[in-house]
């Protein structure tokens, strides 16, 4: 029973997030690239997506973390690492280049599948291949970070 609730809440959270990505126009690569083009014709809208998301999340999160445990799980699984390593910098830079080239970050890649469009399928497959390859490589190399 609790497993069913876990699946349903995951579906609800994903749906709400996908709706947010769509309403905010984060799924429009033209808007994303115009936002990133701060030296050209600049569309600052997406800064408000970040600001809104961050404000709401930062406001609620401390109250949630005051709880002993989540509603449907034994404990909170938060990333505890704090140190800045090479991985976070190199990964961040590579991700940014990809985002700046195509105008898609992971959320919009997945939510845009709803448009059933050839180009979006191409980005999605490339994202899946890149994800698989790098996770495979990371799992098969010694942790150098």
């Amino acid at each position: 029973m609790s497993n069913l609730f876990r699946l349903l809440t995951a579906l609800a959270a994903g749906t709400l997030l996908g709706l947010g990505l769509a309403v905010s126009q984060m799924i429009d690569p033209a808007k994303v690239l115009n936002f990133l083009d701060i030296f050209g014709n600049w569309d600052p809208s997406l800064a408000f997506v970040m600001a809104g998301g961050l404000a709401v999340n930062a406001l609620i999160t401390p109250f949630i973390l005051k709880r002993q445990r989540p509603l449907l799980a034994e404990f909170f699984r938060l990333p505890l690492k704090v140190e800045i390593d090479k991985r976070i910098i190199i990964g961040g830079i590579l991700f940014g280049i990809g985002w700046g080239l195509a105008g898609y970050c992971p959320g919009p890649i997945i939510t845009s599948l709803s448009f059933i469009d050839r180009d979006i399928l191409i980005v999605f497959i490339a994202f899946v291949v890149g994800t698989f390859a790098s996770r495979w490589a990371l799992a098969h190399t010694k942790n150098t970070a």
Partner: peptide, 14 residues
């Protein structure tokens, strides 16, 4: 290229 780099970069950069 963009999709590949987004996949690779986000996994390396967690």
């Amino acid at each position: 290229i963009g999709g590949l780099l987004v996949g690779i970069g986000t996994q390396i950069g967690t």
